[in-house]
Structure formats: structure tokens, C-alpha cells
Simulated assay, not measured.
Amino acid sequence: MQYIIAIALAIFLYYIQDSYYKRHWNDQLTVTITYNQTYAHIGDTLELTEIIRNQKQLPLSLLYAKFRTSRSFIFEQSSSAAISDYYYRNDAFSILGNQQITRKLPFQVTKRGYYTINSVHLVAKDLFLLKTYAAVTENDTSLYVYPGLLLSHRDIQLTNTIIGDILTRNLYEDPMSFRGIRDYCSGDSMRYINWKATAKNSSLQVNTFYDTQQAHVMLLVNLDTQKPGHTERLKEYILSVAATLIQQLNNHGVYISLQINSNDCLTGTPLYITEGSGTEHLHKLFQGIARMDVNSPATDFYQLLYSASEPDFCDQTSYLILSNDHNTDLIRACATLQQQGKNLTFLCPEYSSFLHTANVPLDHFYYWEIINDKA
């Protein structure tokens, strides 16, 4: 008889707790997963923080928090993880009432991109570990991994050569920096004639000014490589070249705008970042490059090139073309813009085996030899 009563009592308690757990197991239960930084560089080690808060009396003897991150993140080996197209974690917790558990997971970033964790799947067990309850909770955390920079001596030397060429062509006389007076020469602007000095010397005299420099560079990146094989690696390398140029231009105080004919993973449209300079603008440019979806079809680069060179843009803007594709039509289009007075430089990242020895019929054309495309 006692056994029957005990069994009946156990069954009664089981159904009571099952009914209560079913209705209240996730009451005042919050799960937050965050990256400890908003941006990182390839090779950096970060932490992913899991915070479980149970703000009720009811304990959870077994709670699983399931979420996915990029497979490019390298975590310490864990039996609760699985890797396929993503890195899936299934972390187990046992949490009492009114308790908070914080767990930190170190990992290393290895690939450029924009990464988010938008949801966490929760699976809980009842007190008897027999029934399973599940729910999905929203999560809001994101991480920018900036493109790798090319910092070898050869790369820096070529970067400085290109930037030096651009900056030299951006020198102009600053009418606010008076230098002196000299005799008038054919071709001098009439607005610089100093009439008072002319009256004293009985010959035309003109004001002269110191040269100054306020460079504006629009970087146009073409991710339509037209190159069979190694396509994704080549595109990633081109983005690393772009980031390297941007950092060096920013170091020289250049105002930079950026257009890329590939889709932004957030907007689904080609990237366009307006002109700016300084540290905050540098982060904005790097974040834009981080969001590039290199697997999306590239849009028409000719349309981007012609729209970018329309008269609406600053007359002092220098155009820096970054393109592996340098077919005859594209070179001819760039040459036409140069003939129209545009300050245009063409930089072609190219594998050693594809380098052409023949001269390209375009002024200010540079090859960037790709020796190792693992940027």
C-alpha cells in the first residue's frame, strides 16, 4: 500500500511540476550573448560572453543555449560545438532561482566580414529531466572584422609611390598664402594682377602665392575580376589593397570617398560612402568594406565610373581606380576621362603569371603584383 501511495504521490508531483514548468520555465529568464568589441582586425583574439539571468525562484536543472556564429571564428575545442556551414554551439547550464551565470568564450577572428548573432534557441528540462521545453529569444550583437592590411616593405613602397603621385598632382596655389610679387608672364590670370605695384613699376605685376594641398580622392573598386579560379581569394586581396590605400591616404589627411560595385550585405546595394577624413571616417570606410558580399554579382563598373566622374563632384577630386580587370574598353574609358582633364590613376592587382610586359596605353597606370593572395 505504501508503494502505491508513493507512486501516486510521485505521479501527482510530476504532473504538478510539469504543468508549472510548462507555463513558467522561461518567465524572467534572459539570455544575452555579446562580443566584447564592436570591431576587430584579422588575427585578433576576442571574447564571446554568455549571460544567463534567472530572476525567479524556480530553478532550471538543465538549460541549453543554442546559437550559431561564423565558422571562420576559431574557438577552443568544445564537445558542445559542431561545425558545418556555421559554427554551432550548444552550451549547457544548471541555474538556480535568482541566479546569474556568466561564461566567456575566447576566440580568434580569421576572416573579413560583418557578423551577427540575432537569436538564441533555449531548451530546458523539467525537474525530473523527462520533459523538454523550447523557446527562441532575440539577441542583438554584431562584430565588424576589418580587411587585412598589406604591410610588407614592397607593398608600402608601392602605396607611397601611388599616393605621392596623386598628392603631387593636387598641388595648387592658395590665394590666402601670399608669397610675393613678380613681373607678369603670358598665361597669368588677370585676377592676380597687383594694380598698385603695376602703377609704381610701369609694367604689369602679379601676386604669387605658396602652393598648398587639399587632396580629395574617390576610390573606385571593381570586384568584377573576369578571372577564372581563385575568384574569392582575389576579391578579398583587392579589398585588402583598398583598405591599405585608404589607411595611407587617411594618414596624409586626404578626403576620401569610396564606391564598390558589389553589394553591401546590409542594404543589398553597391557600396557608396561619401567624402570625409579622420579616424571616425576611417572606421566608416573599413566597416563598409567589411560588409561587402563578394559572392554577390558585381554591378556594371562602367556605369559606376561615369556617374562618379560627373561634374557634380569636386573639380579637385582625384580618381583612383582599383581593378584587376583592365580590358581594352575599360582602359579606353579611363583614357577618355584623363583627356577630359580628370586626375585619374589606375591600379591593377595582378598575379605574377598574368602580368603583361606590354605598356598599357594609359597615364598613371600601375601594376600591383600579387605574390601571395592570402592577405
Rank of each mutant, 00 (worst) to 15 (best):
F313H: 15
R53Q: 14
A243E: 05
Q213W: 00
R71Q: 12
L220I: 05
A81F: 03
R53Y: 10
Q339L: 05
S240P: 09
F73C: 04
L245A: 04
M218E: 14
T269D: 12
Y192W: 09
Q340V: 00
L158E: 12
E173Q: 14
L149R: 09
R169Q: 15
N251T: 08
N98Q: 12
L204H: 07
L223F: 10
Q77I: 01
Q2T: 10
V109Y: 09
A10P: 03
I156A: 12
A298V: 03
A134K: 15
A82G: 13
S142W: 05
I181M: 05
F346R: 07
N359S: 13
D85S: 13
L220T: 06
D300Y: 01
T69I: 09
F346Q: 11
T116A: 07
T208V: 03
Y184K: 07
Y351H: 09
Q55H: 12
I7M: 13
Y35M: 00
Q99N: 11
S72V: 04
I321R: 07
F128P: 08
F286G: 06
N343I: 03
Q316H: 06
N98F: 15
P349W: 01
N263C: 06
S189A: 11
I163H: 06
L13D: 11
A358I: 02
D165H: 11
K200C: 02
P270M: 00
N222V: 03
F75I: 04
Y14T: 07
L29E: 06
L320N: 02
W25L: 01
D224C: 01
D85H: 07
T30M: 04
N327Q: 10
S79E: 11
A8E: 06
T110H: 11
Q57V: 11
I289E: 11
E350V: 15
H216Q: 12
T69W: 01
F209N: 08
L220Q: 07
Q77P: 12
